[in-house]
Amino acid sequence: MFELDHVLAQDIVDRAMLILPFNVNVMDCQGLIMGSGEPERINTRHEGAQLVLANQRVVEIEVQSSPCLKGVQPGINVPLMHDERLIGVLGLTGDPHKLRTYAELLRMTAEMLVSQRHREVQSQWRKQRSDDLLALLLADSGDCPRLLDEAQQLGLKHQLTRTPLLIELTSMQVATMVSEWLLARVPDSWCLSPSPKTVLWCCPAQSGVDPHKYLQKMHTRGWTPVRVAFGVPAQGIERLRKVCTHVTALAAYGRAVLKTERLLLLTRLRLPAMLWAHREEYVIEELLAVVNKVRAKDSNGQLMQTLRSWCEHSGQIQTCADALGLHRNTLRYRMDRISEITEMDLSQLDNVITLYLGVQLMADG
């Protein structure tokens, strides 16, 4: 239920008195002055307003009758309505016979301001409730029928297929602007803030929505992300929740290991990101130990550079050699050296996987 407050009441007064040559008072539903052109009267009781509230009609107060009422000056007092409910009283000080037209204009303007403020409050409540509900939906056990029903009522369309992107930005202010911008331009988007500088954007996978295009537009606006963890399409809350968890792990993996990469794709890095989430376990130490053997024998960094490029190009010798600017025989020599150091036969798939995973878990530098 919407109620007047001091801020709105004084806003009505200030706007009215820019035009009207009379003092204006705004009283709440108890007859207490909430806003006035005479600040000393704020928070005092206005008995004329109480008469309006009791009788739900306009009350005019003449000069001779004003001393009989506490906190009252000559003037006219009119009901302030919202949604057919009496929420307060508007008062104009002066000769009531000369103020009737002004009073009606004031009432019309004030009721428009009240309606506008009410819409703003409703919009803020709706956004806050939507944010809270989305956080619950994407948390554990967030798919209970009650939450899903409320999501449907709020128009959140939980049944849509969505692709989650975790966008890391330079500041909380930029994150807020990006979130508002995406919500305004991409219909049916969900945007949450897992931390002050991040936006979890659940982009609807509908026709014509290309997340890459919006990331490029963000760049042109000066909102270049520090890092973007790009998920895969997911339909249904349970599936989306799992992908969001993977995307969060992917971002953490990128921050720790691939520090210079801005775009992290779950389709390419799902396995190393998953392993990074369990980096304290002994098996991960074994994978890193293999690559550390290479590092220990690599005084100029050539072997590690070669090994990373070899992994990036899926072991394709010519493609990797071209990327490094090497002759393929030079590349073969380096790979043979890596094989010798690690004591691994790189023609064996399990050895290749072990080496690949170790490289993916090794931080840059």
Rank of each mutant, 00 (worst) to 15 (best):
S65I: 10
V114T: 00
A135Q: 13
P233V: 01
V228P: 06
A110S: 09
K157R: 14
G48N: 09
T319F: 08
M1C: 08
H118W: 13
R119N: 11
L92H: 04
A139W: 04
D11V: 08
L355S: 02
Q360H: 13
L32T: 12
G75L: 01
H212F: 15
V257L: 05
K259P: 08
G35N: 05
Q30I: 15
Y333Q: 12
P96G: 08
W223N: 01
I284H: 02
L86S: 06
P74K: 04
I19W: 12
Q206P: 07
L154H: 02
H118V: 05
R129C: 03
L156K: 00
E104S: 11
R334V: 01
R227W: 08
G37V: 01
G94T: 04
L20A: 13
L307W: 02
V257S: 03
E84H: 12
L264R: 02
R129T: 08
R268E: 14
I12L: 06
L269T: 01
Q64D: 13
D298S: 04
N292P: 04
E120S: 07
T109E: 15
L106V: 01
S299E: 14
R255V: 08
R146C: 04
W310K: 01
P204Y: 02
P145M: 07
Q56H: 11
K259L: 14
Q173C: 08
E281C: 02
L134G: 03
R57V: 07
Q318T: 15
L51K: 03
R85D: 05
R279Y: 05
P194W: 02
G88S: 07
S299N: 09
V174C: 06
Q122P: 03
I341N: 00
I33H: 00
M27I: 04
E84A: 13
M344D: 09
N292L: 09
D336Q: 14
A296G: 03
H278W: 15
M81G: 07
L355I: 00
F230N: 05
P74I: 11
Q305H: 09
V174K: 06
E286Y: 07
V63W: 14
D364G: 11
G358K: 00
K197V: 13
R185L: 13
R57A: 08
D11F: 10
A234R: 01
S171H: 04
E120I: 05
L361I: 04
D143K: 02
R227Q: 12
G35F: 00
T267I: 12
K242A: 13
M112C: 10
C203K: 04
T176A: 11
I76G: 00
L271V: 09
I76W: 08
H327M: 11
K217L: 15
